[in-house]
Design a protein around this nucleic acid. Structure first.
Length: 401
RNA sequence: GGCGCCGUGGCCAAGUGGUAAGGCAGAGGUCUGCAAAACCUUUAUCACCGGUUCGAAUCCGGUCGGCGCCUCCA
């Protein structure tokens, strides 16, 4: 059995075949650090952490890039609201809290953790290139990507460009200047009191989406194996990334496997900053061990819309106790090849961690009753990133990627 | 309106053609000085209607209901 991953572009599971045998290049959309992060972010990054660990366990050399979009409307909004507070300060403050949460959850630090504002040159270069190729056009300092000229636009969203164009203002800015309703900004003029950078078109700032293209190209090359992120980023963000990257490089596909995690809901409603229905990982970690929270976050498949309810984590208490106990107490260091096989089978099936955990829990019960396989159990739990199983990571003092 | 996901016992949930895993909660029990833990036992006409089939939770069509995306969002 080999690893099969579900890719949103084809809407099916495919065998994972990296561009370069033995290596995996992964880009995962990070956060915009203008505000708190919540359990939904933790759900996403813990699951991509498991993807990464599993690929490494399979023997692949993984390069994992996760960006920080530190210049956008929201960052500026917060800066203005707080009397012109420097954006770098807002970024660093929120990012430190975010990182501390992920560290406690034993999420491995990314191989590269780029900031958008450190890639303005690359953004300008990519924009120039898209202009030179005729994929973009400039209007009075603003540069737009012309979506209609990219025939595959809409494919990730499962909808044709003609259908998309019928919708209301997919990208609502600068409506009057655009050639087509789906065109989106690569570079934009900004207000005098907003952060800006010199460019051939105007002193301005990047649009949204171009920074991810610039960063993935800078750190992973023209084509990547896996692009991850929340399903809410599919449109327009990832749709735009495909259009930009493939237009700029002429290489297709830009990405082999599009992996989108489901949205975490709170009592049936999507958790989001705008609704304010947030549960924070750091608050939960006051009541539960980080590994216990990780167990919860891996108990729903990454692609499903998990629904958090009061009691969801408590419900896993006895499982958590069994798994930690087996790691602490099991003396006999025996392997269980059958357990390895079913574990790998579950994980090979689009990272079915919930199924894997069921299997490991059953095995833990047997080990605690005198069965064999403690070594396998511990190692498998380490692949899933549990610090109590000695998984390497920040929670065990290893900040190295 | 468009795209997509989903409706399985009190709750969560596996199961993609051969008469329903598991977990939590509940009930009963074993063990224990009591309790806890552990272990054992116990709970389902699979949203509804129609179709295909020897046979469907599982495939097809429809209905109802819930959710996500289509605007910033992991």
């Amino acid at each position: 059995m080999t690893l099969h991953l579900y890719s949103s572009l084809e809407r099916k599971k495919r065998e994972f075949i990296p561009l370069v045998p033995g290596e995996a290049r992964i880009y995962v959309c990070g956060v915009t650090p203008y505000d708190v992060t919540h359990l939904g972010h933790a759900f996403s990054y813990v699951n991509f952490d498991v993807l990464r660990r599993y690929l490494m366990w399979k023997g692949l050399k993984v390069r994992y890039v996760q960006n920080v979009t530190d210049i956008d409307d929201d960052m500026i909004m917060v800066s203005k609201r707080e009397g012109g507070r420097p954006i770098a300060q807002i970024r660093d403050e929120n990012d430190a809290i975010f990182r501390a949460d992920l560290d406690r959850l034993n999420v491995l630090r990314p191989t590269v953790y780029p900031f958008a504002t450190d890639h303005i040159d690359a953004i300008i270069e990519t924009t120039k290139r898209l202009l030179a190729l005729g994929a973009a056009y400039e209007v009075d300092g603003d540069v737009f990507f012309e979506a209609q000229r990219f025939s595959d636009y809409g494919r990730l969203n499962g909808i044709s460009i003609q259908e998309l164009a019928k919708l209301d203002n997919p990208e609502s800015k600068r409506e009057e200047k655009k050639r087509g309703p789906l065109d989106f900004l690569l570079w934009q003029r900004c207000a005098p009191d907003e952060p800006s950078w010199p460019s051939p078109w105007c002193d301005g700032r990047p649009g949204w989406s171009i920074e991810c293209t610039a960063m993935s190209q800078s750190h992973l090359g023209d084509q990547i194996d896996i692009h991850g992120g929340g399903s809410d980023l599919i449109f327009p963000h990832h749709e735009n990334e495909i259009a930009q990257a493939e237009s700029a490089t002429g290489q297709s596909p830009f990405c082999g496997y599009w992996m989108h995690n489901g949205m975490l809901k709170l009592d049936g409603v999507k958790m989001s900053k705008s609704l304010g229905n947030l549960v924070l990982a750091r608050n939960l970690m006051e009541r539960f061990e980080p590994d216990h929270l990780r167990l919860y976050l891996l108990s729903e498949h990454y692609r499903s819309d998990a629904d958090y309810r009061e009691g969801s984590i408590e419900g896993l208490s006895s499982r958590y106790a069994r798994l930690t106990k087996v790691c602490e107490e099991a003396e006999e260091d025996t392997e269980d090849s059958a357990l390895w096989r079913v574990f790998e089978e579950a994980m090979d099936d689009d990272l079915d961690a919930p199924r894997a955990l069921d299997l490991l829990d059953q095995a833990a019960g047997k080990v605690l009753n005198g069965g064999i396989g403690a070594a396998t159990l511990r190692q498998a739990l380490a692949v899933l990133g549990f610090a109590f199983a000695d998984a390497r990571g920040p929670a065990r003092g290893s900040l190295e990627p």
